[in-house]
């Protein structure tokens, strides 16, 4: 196919992926997010290496926030696992949307494991945007470069946040800890375009603290399920309204 970007070899494609990651706005967003997560890990008494390990194996900032706060709150391991897995269902359709761009690049199924693991919002958005312009044989290497570069940013800035929180006076440490809620509220609102997402956004903000206040068991699980159910109800109502409209 004409017009698709070719590379001289696979490492060159990998490096191009890493370069495009480091020059995208997402690198900055990730740095800020993981400074906040580092501060949170310090506040909750986790080791910076534990956070770094979670960045590598979990590689989903929302799941990591949930993991840190549920484990720190003394929730049971089952509660933490349920909340994490509910937050991770969204990864399923993301992988499903990404793979058609990579399939055909290789006959080796195992080569798809790494891009699958790297799938998280930043890498996914950039992959869907950039991969269609890249020649098929180089896409997996490019994708891995992209994913690994984003992960390296997150890994490094988790430590930055941890040690900043450890050394800063209370007011500045508070500002670092405020980074996580403030950035997740605004970035989630930005991604909430459909009515169902907006309903879920508000439901989460109201139900999360409310269920915790009344000490409802598995409060986060119920926040996710009730918020999801309300949002789905709104989605169906809207569709019915649109279908019956003249």
């Amino acid at each position: 196919m004409a017009g698709l970007k070719e590379f001289s070899n696979q490492p060159a494609a990998f490096r191009a992926g890493a370069r495009s990651a480091w020059t995208s706005v997402f690198a900055l967003v990730l740095a800020g997010t993981y400074v906040g997560l580092g501060a949170l890990a310090h506040d909750f008494g986790f080791s910076p290496w534990w956070l770094a390990a979670s960045t590598i194996v979990v590689w989903a900032a929302p799941a990591q926030v949930i993991l840190l706060s549920t484990l720190a709150n003394g929730s049971t391991l089952i509660e933490a696992a349920i909340a994490v897995t509910l937050s991770a269902i969204r990864l399923f359709p993301m992988v499903v949307a990404l793979l058609p761009l990579l399939r055909g690049a290789t006959k080796n199924r195992r080569a798809l494991w790494l891009p699958t693991h790297f799938t998280a919002i930043s890498m996914w958005v950039e992959s869907l945007r950039l991969l269609p312009g890249i020649a098929l044989p180089f896409r997996i290497a490019f994708c891995n470069g992209l994913g690994l570069a984003y992960m390296a940013v997150a890994f490094a800035f988790g430590f930055v946040g941890f040690y900043l929180a450890a050394g800063l006076p209370v007011l500045l440490a508070a500002a670092l800890l405020f980074l996580t809620p403030m950035s997740f509220i605004t970035s989630t609102a930005r991604n909430s375009r459909a009515v169902s997402d907006k309903v879920a956004f508000v439901a989460g903000i109201v139900l999360g603290p409310l269920l915790a206040w009344y000490q409802v068991g598995l409060d986060l699980m119920w926040t996710g399920i009730m918020g999801g159910a309300l949002a789905y109800g709104a989605h169906r109502l809207r569709r019915v309204a649109m279908e019956t409209a003249p």
């Binding site: 929302p62 926030v65 949930i66 909340a83 509910l86 937050s87 991770a88 269902i89 969204r90 359709p93 997740f184 509220i185 989630t188 991604n191 909430s192 459909a194 169902s196 997402d197 309903v199 879920a200 956004f201 508000v202 439901a203 989460g204 903000i205 139900l207 999360g208 603290p209 986060l220 926040t223 996710g224 399920i225 009730m226 918020g227 999801g228 309300l230 949002a231 789905y232 989605h235």
Partner: peptide
């Protein structure tokens, strides 16, 4: 998407 949104804002 809705479940993930409600969980993270929660």
């Amino acid at each position: 998407r809705a479940v993930a949104t409600a969980l993270i804002t929660g």
